[in-house]
Structure formats: structure tokens, C-alpha cells
Amino acid sequence: MSHVDNPWVTHSGTAPPGESAPGVESYGESAEQVTEGRALRPHEGLPPGPTALPLWQQSARARWWWLGCHGGAGVTSLQRALGDGADALRGWPYLGPAHPAPHVVLVARSTAAGLQAAQAAARQWAARQAGTPDPGLLGLVVVADAPGRLPPPLRRLRDLVAGGVPRTWEIPFTEAWRLGEDPATHHPRAVTTLARALHSLTETGT
């Protein structure tokens, strides 16, 4: 599979108004994986966006790190629901050049601000500004901020952002989480799909 160096220039992933890009599901109770995997990699020459997430020195190892692109992205709920992965505390996990590259999963809400924050984080990774060695970016989890389908402008933005990450998953709005129910026992089917995918990716590589 060929590498795509700058997906926001060579491929936008956008679709006509009112439609989703190929491989992208609309929000719904059964929304699961959004895009299939593509071999993307960081590269030289792409400047990072105007905002950048910090690098945090981590002494512990994790199967993967949940990196919330903004406050309230949904990292805590996802971590509890899957029972795996470590919270990166809104910064790229840095283990040092002598350690293997950490696996990272970006997390963002489906709001315009959340998706823009995810795009900025993906651009930072693509610009090789996320630590050395480059983290293994597994993909992006978009957590619905409200029930129902995304409005067309947000669908287009979601599709654009999805073009810059290897794969994207959507987690539909979950009323039980809003009411304070335990995500470990109250979660949509999409969480099971996400768990299966992440365990497979961290066993076989990205």
C-alpha cells in the first residue's frame, strides 16, 4: 500500500453536500468504524498548525494512549468502556528515543471545535512535531456530542479530518453516559468494534 504524505493537499476525503465520503457511516445507533485503514506517515516539510499539543514524558508503558484533542473529548468514558489504554492527559506521550514508538488514538467530540482540534493534532503528527520516534497514530475516535445525524457542515468537516488520519471510528451519542452510568457496562455496539480493532492493531502493528 502506498503512503500518503499530505492527505489535506492530495486527497480531502470530502463528499458532495448531504453525502458521506466513501467508507464513512453517518451517525446512528449502530454507527461503528468510519474509514478503513490507510498507510499514512509523518513527513518533512509540512508546518504544524497554529496550535499544538505538548509532549509529556511518560515513565509507564501502555498498549495504546488515548489523546484527547481538547477538553471533554470523551477519553475517560472510552478508557472505562474498553478497560484498556492510558490517558495521555492531552499531550503526546514521549518515552524517549531508546523506546519503541507509542501507539496513540486521537479522541474528539463531533462539534466543529472538536473536529478542528483533531485536525490540528493530526497535522502536528504529520509535521513530525509529536515526538521522536514518531508516535504510531492508530486513528481518530469521534464521540457524538448529540443524538442523530450530523448536520451537513459537520459531516463535511468530519470527512475532511478523516482524510488525514489512518482510520476513524464514530461512537454514537450514549444517553447512559450522560446520566452517569458506568461505561464499562453501558456502552453502544461501536465500543465493542473499537476495542476489537485497537487490540488487533496493537498486536499486528499499524
Results as ranks from 00 to 15, higher is better:
4 V>G: 04
4 V>L: 08
5 D>I: 13
5 D>E: 14
5 D>Q: 14
6 N>V: 15
7 P>S: 04
7 P>N: 04
8 W>K: 00
8 W>V: 08
8 W>Y: 06
8 W>H: 07
8 W>S: 06
9 V>W: 12
10 T>M: 06
11 H>Y: 05
12 S>N: 04
12 S>F: 01
13 G>N: 06
13 G>D: 04
14 T>K: 08
14 T>W: 06
15 A>I: 06
15 A>C: 06
16 P>H: 03
16 P>D: 03
17 P>W: 04
17 P>D: 01
17 P>I: 08
19 E>N: 01
19 E>C: 08
19 E>T: 15
20 S>F: 00
20 S>W: 09
21 A>T: 05
22 P>S: 11
22 P>I: 12
23 G>M: 01
24 V>F: 07
24 V>Q: 08
25 E>S: 12
25 E>N: 09
25 E>L: 10
25 E>W: 11
26 S>D: 15
27 Y>I: 04
27 Y>A: 12
28 G>R: 06
29 E>C: 02
29 E>V: 12
29 E>T: 15
30 S>I: 07
31 A>P: 02
31 A>C: 10
31 A>E: 11
31 A>W: 08
32 E>K: 12
32 E>P: 00
33 Q>L: 13
34 V>E: 00
34 V>M: 10
35 T>I: 07
35 T>C: 02
35 T>S: 07
36 E>F: 14
36 E>Q: 13
36 E>R: 11
37 G>K: 02
37 G>C: 11
38 R>L: 10
38 R>P: 00
38 R>K: 09
39 A>W: 10
39 A>H: 14
40 L>C: 04
40 L>T: 03
42 P>E: 07
42 P>D: 05
43 H>E: 09
43 H>Q: 14
44 E>S: 14
46 L>H: 03
46 L>E: 09
48 P>Y: 05
51 T>D: 09
51 T>V: 15
52 A>N: 09
53 L>T: 00
53 L>G: 02
54 P>W: 12
55 L>I: 05
56 W>P: 00
57 Q>V: 15
57 Q>F: 12
57 Q>G: 11
58 Q>Y: 01
59 S>R: 15
59 S>G: 15
59 S>N: 14
59 S>I: 03
59 S>D: 09
60 A>K: 10
60 A>I: 09
61 R>I: 07
61 R>T: 15
62 A>H: 05
62 A>K: 02
62 A>F: 02
63 R>T: 13
63 R>H: 03
63 R>L: 07
63 R>K: 07
66 W>E: 01
66 W>F: 02
67 L>H: 10
67 L>E: 11
68 G>E: 09
68 G>S: 04
68 G>I: 08
70 H>G: 05
70 H>D: 01
